[in-house]
């Protein structure tokens, strides 16, 4: 376990050093992201300006949902985004390298990216979040900060679990991009808006299926001191637990996938 953690950190460090050689990419990434998100912000504010509010949420509050989702995505991208391209590794036989080394292949896969690749997203996410909490009038207390930390970890794990699942499906189908774009990406887009604008089915799917509602919708209630408005206020405090459970389940599926991969051969 300790050996695995040590190796993970060393490998990630190595990836970071490698990444530093491509500094231009980093800036290009930040600029393209700012452009994309600005467009979405403008669309969002146009909508709320026009209608005053969306399903009982003011513009500032909607922006907070949005910012929480982006914040979680910032952490998830830094740690897990490379899992989306796992099918390339399988197809090119690169993953076999991990199997002939005495280290858990899952650790080797996770360590295949440096957090620097996601830094642009993360810096932008944090800035957007701070700005949004200011506008939404969030009153900060030490307890809320601690809570936010738990939400950040839990959310990163929830999104991480989704990306680990995508890579696990790659073992069975030799495809990963398609699962990201057809499942994870649309679900992420859905939670950019308040959950209560959707039908019951969608609300349930985003709570127990792909539990992305725990990333922003439920936690935002606590930050805005409105947890009591939820049908079950407890939901607002489950994010870290959901994250851990989802990630463990995704890892389980990944191990099953590995077994099938080794059994079937390619």
């Amino acid at each position: 376990m300790l050996h695995a953690l040590r190796c993970y950190l060393l490998l990630v460090g190595a990836q970071a050093r490698a990444q530093m050689q491509y500094r231009f990419n980093f800036f290009a990434q930040v600029f393209s992201m700012i452009a994309t998100y600005m467009g979405q912000f403008i669309a969002l504010s146009w909508l709320t300006d026009r209608f005053g509010s969306i399903s009982g949420w003011k513009l500032e509050e909607v922006i907070l949902f949005y910012a929480l989702a982006i914040l979680a995505w910032g952490f998830a991208v830094s740690l897990f985004f490379h899992l989306v391209s796992f099918e390339d590794q399988i197809r090119e036989g690169l993953f076999d390298r991990a199997l002939v080394r005495p280290l858990n292949p899952f650790v080797q896969l996770l360590a295949g990216q440096s957090p620097i690749a996601g830094t642009g997203q993360l810096v932008f996410s944090i800035a957007a979040f701070l700005w949004a909490t200011g506008r939404a009038g969030v009153v900060w207390t030490p307890l809320k900060l601690l809570y936010l930390l738990g939400v950040a970890v839990g959310s990163a794990l929830i999104l991480g679990a989704a990306l680990v699942t995508v890579s696990a499906l790659g073992f069975f189908t030799r495809r990963t991009y398609t699962f990201y774009w057809s499942l994870v990406f649309p679900a992420r887009q859905l939670v950019h808006y308040p959950l209560n604008i959707y039908s019951q089915v969608v609300q349930w799917l985003l709570t127990v299926g792909l539990p992305f509602a725990f990333i922003n919708y439920y936690p935002a209630h606590v930050l805005l001191d409105r947890a009591a408005d939820l049908p079950w206020p407890l939901l607002a405090y489950l994010t870290p637990l959901v994250g851990v459970v989802a990630f463990a389940a995704a890892y389980g599926l990944w191990c099953l996938g590995l077994r099938s991969y080794v059994g079937a051969g390619s």
């Binding site: 040590r6 190796c7 060393l10 190595a14 050093r17 490698a18 080394r101 005495p102 280290l103």
Partner: peptide, 19 residues
């Protein structure tokens, strides 16, 4: 080997992976 890193870095990483 690790494509973007100096050769010696790959050896160092393997030193840790293989203890």
């Amino acid at each position: 080997l690790w494509w973007d890193l100096p050769t010696i870095d790959s050896f160092e990483l393997l030193r840790h992976i293989y203890r």
